[in-house]
Design a protein around this nucleic acid. Structure first.
Lengths: 151, 151
DNA sequence: ATTTATTGTTTGCAATTTACAATTTTTTGA
DNA sequence: TCAAAAAATTGTAAATTGCAAACAATAAAT
């Protein structure tokens, strides 16, 4: 059996390649991080700037500037949170949601192609395995949380 | 069942966090990409500059500069290939191999902790699943290969 | 044998990305 | 009330990136 880390290294590398393909939608150029930001804003409903930055493990200042770009591109909206006016709530514009959905569809298509090389049973097993893995990573103490506040 | 992409997105994000931790060994600061380069040089035995850059899906010029840094840090050695003197063969120095091994050990330790949250049977299943997934990604046509020569 | 094309690698350079420190604005709590 | 904390932004300087171009060595062509 191969070294466990190398399994992961190979997997994330290949998934990374897959991810890279997905960053040009209808002539609009999106960087990899930007696509992740769109994805994350969509996932966390009505998140603050802090929340998304934390969730992505990005430095808040870097994130702030990336968001500015996405706002300029009219893909993201920034609305002050009434209850606490320090907080900015992020959301996708119609255009942003469209782009995010387009990327999502494309990624799922790619993944479907990958899974087409295995049986239905194997596919179910793999997906359940990843689910389980994700749960265990979430439980894990030593890792898998961003550590930017650690200083 | 969750969207397939989100399973992958979550997994790679968490593994990415885990990876980030591993970049400071004995006071020596290694960036994430640099750790990947060390790993890849170790994996491919006696690779050329081109080969490693391709394997990592990195732009060759960016890669060239990163290698220069690693050479300066005395972690990587660059030796001209006798048969074809255009080619530079990369290898780890003793120090580089030590660092790479240290990172590898630490990563495996982290992963062991993650897997400690599941049964031995589950662990075997998950590892086999990842192995299978890697094989299918390798087979896949639409993705999972770097596409830098694509222009 | 000499020219021409190709391949592997490195630099010039300009744009982008990054993160630390400091700042602004608002809220909280002693 | 007022100092401390929290959320977000900006100044700045360093690091990273990738295209175009250059360079060196080999292969192919004439």
């Amino acid at each position: 059996m191969e070294n466990i880390r190398s399994l992961f290294q190979t997997m994330t590398k290949r998934f990374g390649f897959l991810n890279k393909n997905c960053c040009s939608v209808d002539g609009m150029e999106i960087s990899l991080v930007q696509s992740h930001i769109l994805y994350e804003i969509d996932r966390l409903k009505q998140p603050s700037v802090q929340q998304v930055a934390d969730s992505l493990g990005m430095d808040i200042t870097t994130f702030s500037r990336q968001v500015q770009k996405l706002v300029q591109m009219r893909l993201v909206r920034k609305t002050p949170y009434p209850e606490d006016r320090r907080i900015m709530i992020l959301s996708l514009t119609t255009e942003g949601a469209y782009i995010a959905a387009k990327i999502d569809a494309e990624m799922n298509e790619y993944l479907a192609e990958v899974f087409s090389h295995m049986s239905e049973f194997e596919k179910e097993t793999v997906l359940r395995s990843i689910q389980l893995l994700n749960d265990c990573m979430a439980k894990s103490s030593v890792c898998c949380k961003p550590m930017y506040g650690s200083k």
